[in-house]
Design a protein around this nucleic acid. Structure first.
Length: 299
DNA sequence: ATGGTTTTTACTGCGTC
DNA sequence: GACGCGGTAAAAACCAT
């Protein structure tokens, strides 16, 4: 039997591992590495020791399916006002069946939005944890999703797109932004779709999200590049002197952060290469080159 | 749709290890 | 020769209009 080791560390970055119960994954909180995916056993939950026992215990039903919101397990009441033999019902019976239909339907739809939310919030959690976002950000994302759902902003959009957009918004609100590209790599939808969904929910829900501050990317980038504290601080200084000025407007924050790191390390003896930085920041060497000189000039 | 801006792509020569 | 770097030019992506 396999013992569950709860306090293991991530093989990649020694971050703490956490088990995401909703999805049977063990995920590193720091880098988002999925360490182990629990195999799902769809076999019977009981054991039979001989044929007779097997006969007694086995149950039958159609396999559950994800295609239906209720996995095909709920009941519907037929519309015909007849009994099982085809005889029509008395008016009194008819009323009763009518009531039953109504309540059954109410129960089903309530169930359906719950299941919808469950699926959507599961997606929120999956994306957020894969990106290594901490718990508060996930909570925020969930809240945003519920608000979007309540406002009927989902029509014509996929659950995945909206869920991912909520995570994106939450990460930005929490000051630990991820780029749209990063979102797109872990989401099941493209970047544009996420961006579109994000724009809608941001305006419709009146989320006051300011343009991403490039400084917010620094801690993550510099830890991934494991560069010195001094470089990190110097990069921050560079950015602080230009943030909010004309110069930064319209430029990708991640690109600016990357350039600042390069500029900072440029002045030390342990220079980072443009290639290294462009890899972790997801911007091209060109973009870094484009910006870093101006940053050096500005202090 | 269009135009202006930024980013990417592809290709280049130069210097260094 | 491989690598890091800077440059150019053109394509592509993005954004506001």
């Amino acid at each position: 039997m396999q013992s569950t080791s709860t306090q293991s560390l991530c093989p990649e970055c020694d971050g703490r591992l956490t088990t995401n119960n909703g999805h049977g994954e063990t995920v590193c909180e720091k880098c988002g590495l999925v360490v182990e995916e629990k195999a799902i056993d769809r076999g019977p939950e009981w054991r039979a020791f001989d044929a007779q026992e097997n006969n007694q215990k086995s149950r039958v039903g159609m396999p559950t399916t994800q295609m239906l919101h209720d996995k095909g397990l709920s009941t519907t009441i037929g519309w015909q006002n007849t009994d099982a033999y085809g005889n029509s019902l008395s008016s009194r019976q008819r009323k009763k069946v009518q009531r039953l239909r109504k309540w059954n339907e109410r129960y089903r739809t309530r169930n359906s939005t719950e299941r919808h939310l469950k699926q959507a919030l599961g997606e929120v959690d999956r994306v957020a944890s894969t990106l290594g976002l901490p718990q508060p950000a996930r909570e925020t994302a969930s809240v945003i999703y519920r608000r979007a759902h309540a406002k009927d902003l989902l029509i014509g959009r996929s659950i995945e797109a909206v869920a991912t957009a909520c995570v994106y918004a939450a990460a930005r609100q929490e000051g630990i932004p991820r780029t749209l590209d990063e979102m797109a790599t872990v989401a099941r939808v493209g970047r544009q779709e996420i961006g579109r969904a994000y724009r809608i929910i941001a305006t419709e829900l009146g989320l006051a999200i300011e343009p991403t501050n490039p400084i917010a990317y620094l801690p993550r980038f510099s830890s991934q590049l494991d560069c010195s504290q001094a470089v990190h601080r110097q990069a921050r200084d560079h950015l602080e002197s230009v943030v909010g000025t004309q110069y930064t407007s319209g430029k990708r924050p991640a690109g600016l952060a990357a350039a600042a790191l390069y500029a900072a390390s440029y002045e030390t003896d342990k220079r980072l290469t443009q290639q290294e930085i462009s890899n972790v920041a997801d911007v091209t060497r060109m973009t870094i080159r484009e910006h870093y000189r101006e940053l050096l000039d500005n202090g």
